[in-house]
């Protein structure tokens, strides 16, 4: 199988995730779009592992998953804490650091 379709798919998913980060206001949905971007890069890793013929790409994808899990844990805890005090999970609320 040629790897180009996989890479194209990975690129598309990544761009969609990036667009989502810019467009959505709900913090949790933004977080989910970030997860989508991470997944897209995982796909690219695995594809290139197949291309090069060694498992280093899969190892890298594995580590990405682990780190993403840790990141989600902490990130969601933060979002929840903020939600408790502010009663809103919009990313546009933190806008005091401006001119």
């Amino acid at each position: 199988m040629s790897i180009t379709p996989f890479l194209v798919l990975s690129g598309l998913l990544f761009s969609i995730g990036a667009m989502g980060v810019l467009v959505r206001r709900n913090a949790i949905v933004v977080f989910m779009c970030v997860e989508l971007m991470l997944n897209a890069s995982n796909l690219a890793f695995v594809t290139f592992a197949r291309q090069h013929g060694n498992l280093d790409g899969q190892i890298a994808a594995f580590f990405v998953m682990v780190v993403a899990a840790a990141e989600v844990v902490v990130g969601l805890a933060i979002i929840m804490t903020i939600f408790r005090t502010r009663r809103s999970a919009s990313v546009d609320d933190a806008s005091l650091l401006k001119y």
């Binding site: 810019l22 650091l97 001119y99």
Partner: peptide, 17 residues
């Protein structure tokens, strides 16, 4: 140019992209 610093994270993310 100062006005570009709107404080909104999404705008900064836009420029990053």
């Amino acid at each position: 140019i100062r006005r570009w610093q709107s404080g909104f994270v999404r705008a900064y993310a836009l420029s990053m992209l």
